[in-house]
């Protein structure tokens, strides 16, 4: 009886804690949404009061009709898609090597690759820009995608190598005895068993590339190629611009990120190797 009560209390405590964290997580989004329904002046007077809250969707309508936010989505989507595609292709095969195809010196190479993450991107942007301009790549999406590959491949390799290391060697050896080649191993063992890491890679780098401001701001100097975050950042400085209009755009811009997260997180399921290890 007593144990039952303590259990219930513990469960209630856990539930309330998780609820509090969830509400605090939801709040910034709610704050943006709530203020996107106001007029500029009412927001400036008090961003935290319901004063001036109108239920008009004017900011959203203008965002779509005048600001053409949906075509900006297309630009960012292009960059995000190809960044993730190449991160997955290059990252999976490299992580396979780092985890399972050891050769002398590979650990040093691994550390070298990882250590390229340790320097802020601002530091390297000038030499990079000049490199791209020699290749006529400035103002091309590919300059942004290449920069992202340089920034995020080491991170993704760190993640996927950690995951692939957990795949039992016996499985690979057994497959080899059955005559499985490099690609068979990738396709039938590494990728299926690495699904959680691959899914996390997709989620992380979709959201990071979707929200990034710095790289596209420097490399894409063409109105028609701007990414959604760069375009939205242009709307506001500390005391000028229209914050409520920008909030409407920011709220719309979270939707693709939330969808990607909601879809892919479902693939993180329990006991992924339960059937195959034994």
């Amino acid at each position: 009886m007593v144990k039952n009560l303590t259990n219930r209390l513990t469960n209630a405590f856990i539930f309330l804690t998780l609820l509090a964290i969830s509400i605090s997580n939801l709040y910034p989004l709610f704050f943006m949404f709530f203020n996107s329904l106001k007029h500029r002046t009412d927001y400036l007077i008090d961003p935290f009061s319901i004063r001036g809250l109108s239920l008009t969707w004017e900011n959203y309508v203008t965002m779509i009709s005048q600001f053409k936010i949906l075509s900006l989505f297309g630009n960012t989507l292009f960059i995000s898609f190809f960044t993730i595609l190449f991160i997955l292709i290059f990252g999976i095969i490299a992580s396979f090597a780092f985890a399972k195809l050891k050769f002398p010196g590979i650990d040093l190479i691994y550390l070298l690759i990882i250590s390229t993450m340790f320097i802020p991107v601002q530091v390297t942007i000038i030499p990079l820009y000049i490199f791209y301009s020699k290749l006529q790549l400035v103002n091309s999406y590919w300059s942004v995608i290449l920069t992202y590959l340089g920034m995020f491949l080491p991170e993704a390799i760190l993640l996927m190598t950690a995951s692939f290391r957990g795949i039992p060697d016996e499985l690979l050896e057994a497959a080899e005895l059955d005559g499985a080649g490099y690609f068979d191993k990738l396709r039938y063992i590494i990728v299926p068993m690495g699904v959680p890491a691959i899914v996390l890679t997709i989620i992380f780098y979709f959201i990071v590339t979707w929200n990034d401001l710095f790289t596209p701001m420097v490399l894409l100097q063409d109105m028609s190629k701007r990414t959604v975050m760069v375009a939205l950042a242009s709307l506001l400085s500390r005391y000028s611009g229209d914050p409520t209009f920008q909030f409407a755009g920011l709220v719309l811009a979270t939707i693709p990120a939330i969808i990607i997260y909601a879809i892919f997180q479902q693939y993180i399921i329990k006991g992924i190797s339960a059937g195959s290890t034994k």
Binding site: I126, L149, L153
Partner: peptide
């Protein structure tokens, strides 16, 4: 193993190591 890491090394050489 070596061939698997070549693409990554090429990208990083130009995009990260050179800068």
């Amino acid at each position: 193993g070596i061939l698997s890491i070549v693409p990554v090394m090429v990208v990083l050489l130009f995009i990260r190591l050179y800068p």
